[in-house]
């Protein structure tokens, strides 16, 4: 039984991600994923959205949301594969794919929120 060095930090990221995902994602997904596409509410025009997204605090919040939500996914999905499909023997591959995906997504978010806006 080896004491876990990384797990506490990964769990903290998972938890923080769970909180921000629970607080912010439903409203954003409701607007951009359902209500705007269905035409029930007129989507905001481009200039407004760009101004909002480019505001430094929004950039920071969006970046935090993306990073934490991705690490939330990585952690939870890793354990879902371990338990739900009994793939614990593949734990190395699964961990690399999950956290690697989260890191790649975070890098993409960093790029899009700085150079891309």
């Amino acid at each position: 039984m080896a004491k876990q060095r990384a797990e506490p930090f990964l769990w903290l990221l998972f938890s923080a991600g769970g909180v921000v995902a629970a607080l912010l994602v439903p409203a954003l997904l409701l607007l951009f994923g359902v209500l705007f596409p269905l035409g029930w509410i007129t989507p905001p025009d481009h200039d407004h959205l760009r101004a909002v997204a480019a505001f430094p605090l929004t950039r920071l919040v969006l970046f935090g949301l993306c990073v934490l939500a991705l690490f939330h996914w990585a952690h939870r999905f890793r354990y879902t594969l371990y338990e739900g499909l009994q793939l614990k023997h593949l734990h190395r591959v699964i961990a690399v794919l999950c956290y690697g995906g989260a890191i790649a997504g975070s890098a993409a978010a960093a790029y899009l929120l700085t150079a891309g806006l």
Binding site: A53, H72, T80, G105
Partner: peptide
């Protein structure tokens, strides 16, 4: 969590 990750992808495309 899979749909949380999907949302992040959807949001990044929007950004």
């Amino acid at each position: 969590s899979v749909f949380v990750a999907w949302f992040v992808a959807f949001l990044l495309l929007l950004i």
